[in-house]
Amino acid sequence: MFQLANPRRFYDLAQRLEPWVWAIAAILLSYGLYLGLIVSPPDYQQGETVRIMFVHVPAAWIAMMAYSGMAVASISSLIWRHVVADLFAKASAPVGAGFTFLALVTGSLWGRPMWGTYWVWDARLTSVLILFFLYLGYMALWSAIEDQTKAARAAAVLCLVGAINLPIIKFSVDWWNTLHQPASVARLGGPSIHPAILTPLLVMGIAYMVLYLAMVLQRTRIEILEHRLALALAADASRADRDTSTLSHRSAHSPEGAL
């Protein structure tokens, strides 16, 4: 863990792992989609429409997992000042936003035939929409503050404040009456999904997780590269500044300059 705090080590490790992680993600995704779209049976109530679940539910899981990862990174950034933690959180945000968007869109497309509406303002749907806006706000904050150190600190605080939303999303269906149904998988008493439908769902869940990992590894690696580049450019610029100022200083006082 502390090895990874070193940007150089993280970069090397990510570079080595990336192709493998992408390959595993591709294999798992194809297998999961095959299971979900072809092998698994229709649902007794929802018929074939239940297959939307295989893209919708894992997307919602990753939406929350990506934010949890950012929150943990933000805590370590605020306490231990790890550059990699900042860059990891920064790199995760667009990935998490993408999965949240996917969950919202597929949920809406599922809601229309099943519930009879694309959207309602119940506690579950609204809290996930807030999660999406938190991701956007987080990204906006990073790009709004020019000083990267200050941006990292502000973004970490925003991320942690927003983390309050995570338990609200998870338990919204238990605490309040919602149109959205209660949890089927992660609940007391075990999953309420028949194994024939649960297996493709879990395979898709793992596939999305590996896909998330591949995206975040690559994006974090690129962030490290950009961070290095910015540091090098700043160092260059200050050296150039010093050179020109000493040059002009010299020329102003040199006998040739006076002539």
Partner: peptide, 11 residues
């Protein structure tokens, strides 16, 4: 609006 429960199973 219809509300469905958390149970899923083949017919």
């Amino acid at each position: 609006l219809a509300r469905h429960d958390e149970n899923y199973m083949p017919p």
